[in-house]
Design a protein around this nucleic acid. Structure first.
Length: 270
DNA sequence: ACAGTAACCTGTTTGC
DNA sequence: TGCAAACAGGTTACTG
């Protein structure tokens, strides 16, 4: 569910309240997530100070002096800042309790995860093979072009491949391809270097704008203060099947690629 | 090495 | 109204 802008929005929503705070208690009500929460997580985390909160791909990294908590929201995960005494609801699986405030992890589908590493996070098995961050200069039209040369998969599945570039999920993949004027079905190795420059720029501008607007709220994403994101008002194609294209008024088409919905304008994208 | 599929879960929407 | 099927923003393991 949450793609990079939603994860980054979540990070920005909790950072001021939690950086420099010490974990008083870790409450685990359900340890069976995408991967089981390590049994010793409370022992590792309690009495540790959160020195900083970073992000790699869609993982949030809570850095302490002895290790790092890796937290992924999966499809339906959500983090909120709450009063520590607030009663837990059905899918409230974990609380990190600080002084006067707690961070609550809620995840109905349980595709999220909480993992601990006491070595360099970037060496962790879940992070070590990830591709470049889309908003950094290590990702650009040339890196995308290079990665595409030996792939004949549809371009949409290539930009959603975390080995190529991280953070681009189902919504923003369709949106970026629309902005770049590229059909989602086109084989990756049949796109010019110049068009890859445009696609890399489209990915960056789409993600930047979505972060600026607090992410996209379709069903269940909310910022940590409970407000929805507002980027859904900017969507050109996603979830707009049969509606008129914002550029040419032709109806937006919906297809399935790799078991995921794709939306595009057959008139504007080639 | 890559492409395609199934799998992990639950809640909501759609269709008969 | 009731029930079953389809579908949902992510990622990995497995097969061919």
């Amino acid at each position: 569910m949450p793609e990079l802008p939603e994860v980054e929005t979540t990070r920005r929503g909790i950072i001021d309240a939690l950086e420099g705070q010490t974990v008083q208690r870790v409450i685990i009500r359900q340890h069976r997530l995408r991967w089981p929460i390590p049994n010793d997580l409370p022992q590792q985390l309690e009495q540790q100070c959160i020195r900083s909160i970073g992000r790699r791909s869609k993982y949030l990294l809570f850095h302490t002096d002895t290790g790092t908590l890796l937290l992924h929201l999966g499809m339906s995960g959500r983090l909120r800042l709450i009063e520590p005494s607030l009663p837990a609801d059905k899918h409230d699986h974990v609380d990190l309790v600080f002084t006067n405030i707690a961070l609550r992890f809620t995840d109905p589908r349980r595709f999220g995860s909480l993992l601990w590493t006491d070595t360099q996070p970037e060496k962790h098995v879940r992070l070590k093979d990830l591709g470049p961050e889309p908003l950094e200069t290590t990702f650009n039209g040339d890196t995308l072009f290079d990665a595409a040369q030996h792939r004949k998969s549809p371009i949409k599945t290539v930009i959603m491949n975390a080995n190529v570039v991280v953070g681009v999920g189902n919504i923003y993949a369709s949106e970026a391809l629309f902005r770049a004027g590229i059909a989602p079905t086109r084989s990756a190795n049949r796109i010019s270097r110049q068009r890859y420059q445009r696609l890399a720029d489209a990915i960056k501008s789409t993600l930047h704008q979505a972060i600026r607007m607090g992410g996209t709220t379709l069903n269940d994403f909310y910022q940590t203060d409970g407000k929805p994101g507002y980027f859904q008002q900017q969507l050109n194609v996603y979830d707009r099947a049969q509606e008129p294209c914002t550029q040419c008024s032709q109806p937006i088409r919906k297809i399935t690629q790799a078991q995921r919905s794709t939306f595009y304008c057959p008139h504007c994208q080639h």
